[in-house]
Amino acid sequence: MKNTSSLLALAFLALVSFSCSKERFLNDPGNLVPKTVDQDPGLPSILVNGVLLHSEAFGHPDSTMIVCIHGGPGGDYRYLLNCKDLANYGYRVVFYDQRGSGLSQRLPKASYTSLGLAALDAVFNELGGVIAHYRTNPNQKVILLGHSWGGILATGYAGKNPGAIQGLIVGEPGGLKWAEISEYIKKSNAFNLWSESLNDATYTDQFVTGREDRHEILDYKLALLAGTNEITGENNTEPGSAWRSGAVIRDAFLEIGENYKPDFSEGIGQFKTPVLFFFSEKNKAYPDSWAHKISGAYPLADLHKVAGVGHSGIFQDKKTWQEKTLPKLLTYLNSL
């Protein structure tokens, strides 16, 4: 027994000793997650309200502006890039990663949580700042296209500024009142105890842990966690799904939501323009009944169920985009 133990110890020693070369830190920029715009000046960026945002725009600068708002909180706009096609139809298409998300600048968690509900005003003001940055004349029309959390944010903005927006397209906003959002989050993450999805999400915690504001580590863990979701039909392991998650802003906004129970449908009753409302066939947490319930907050909503895809596929899946989403979008845009 003594010999066996010694052999095992030697084997363990050899494995550890020969496998290591030099110190390599999880939180060094670029090691596990891409660098952000403040770390890599080569990335396209704009400065809005003192925060450097990853952003790009396509199409003629004077054309009707469509601002694409990604999901999350803490997602990025990469999966929405099919929307670039709208530039070929005469629109100015604007993309940006929200603060603390994607490749945009990271901020400490306390910078959100210390503001309470005003942290949401900061993201509304940020959206206003993005519009102002790209707007070339005061008469330029602005249309918001928001997916998931982006749809919630777009609705909140339209409710606060009903006269400033000439069109609103939303894709599966989880809910608009906090109780709805909370319920949707629970439904979309109700993994089966025995499933691969559950252990893919939870097993990592014994390999990697990160302190608050260790953005590189926390963003990396969120990227692994968001890999696949059998309930919502998302598969973020497909090419073009994402650049980098924003774990800190996600945590902060979920905490703010729980504490202050915001209502993103406030004022949307004043927005009289028809809203194009997409939802997907394969998102089990978003049945027809839920789509009807959430879309009920808009005075005029045109519901469109997209067959064959899950939550992100409405915009991300190339074939679906070309054959289903884009034609519907163009019809809507032409009607405005």
Partner: peptide
């Protein structure tokens, strides 16, 4: 850490290999 092709699509410069000091603890 050894990343898949899918992750490399998200982050082509991801650095595979041994990471130290300690990567976590509970």
């Amino acid at each position: 850490f050894k990343h898949s092709k899918a992750y490399r699509d998200q982050h082509p410069q991801v650095v595979d290999g041994w990471y130290e000091p300690a990567t976590g603890g509970n």
